[in-house]
Amino acid sequence: MTVEDLTRRYGDTVALDDVSFEVEPNEVFALVGPNGAGKTTIVEILECLRTPTSGSASVLGHDTVAEPDRVKERIGVVPQSFHTFDRLTVRENVSLVRRLYDEGPAVATILERLDLTDYADTRFAALSGGYQRRTGLAMALVSDPEVLFLDEPTTGLDPAARRATWDQVRHLTDLGTTVVLTTHYMAEVEELADRVALLVDGRLEAVDAVDSLVEAYGGEVKLVVETGEDDAAVESALRDAATEVYRDESGALVGLFEDRLVAQETFGRLHELSGDRSIDLTAAGMDEVFLRLAGTTLDSRGEAR
């Protein structure tokens, strides 16, 4: 998959600004960024659902504007706000999409693989959000796609459903499928992605392997301190020693350290200040990379803090 100088404007708004990257076969490629960063726009251009203002994109060697039919035959798609026929059952919805392709596994096989057999005769509208997403994945897999696009596949799912989705993605990559996913969950990126493209305001800030990005931008270690009444003293001590300080999704204070020794000394000082409060000393990750590159962190809805 190749994206070259891709730009997309909506009137005066620039949704994508000269973005270029490549996706290798059989890798999980993550597009991350806050809401409105341009993740979905890129994915929809690759899915032949959107036309770029300039630049080009090709999937499996086919241009997404000039040869959409060739592309669509070989990809699977789970859109961001996935929806299908409410009044058809899971089996009927999956069967419908199966018939739109020339080849693919039996519907029963797909349903079984995704643990949907027990819900096969349940109407889509009656399913929980997790099973609706799973139905979407089943519909995306009916053609044994070479490339699978997952646009925020776990947004709104409970932890168990999220883990189940991750397991499915790993299984697919084991089978040789290339996966492109968008997400604003950094844990999801760390869990699944081989490489990641980080987008902010339509611009590509970085694209590399997850480990390389963490190594380059994440810092050595981080201290995570749960909040309390005397946050000011703790925060002040943390800011004196850390290279970056921010609050994570749960509101805990996070300090990043380039030097592990300094981090360990600060850990001891904070223990004295914070009493019984929980303090964790862990390795840095994509959250920290995102903070460094985007200058902000994301909340659970994907909004910049």
Binding site: K72, V77, P79, F82, H83, L100, G136
Partner: peptide
């Protein structure tokens, strides 16, 4: 989004 999902197929 039902139509959009269909458009993403052949």
């Amino acid at each position: 989004g039902t139509l959009k999902r269909l458009v993403a197929t052949p």
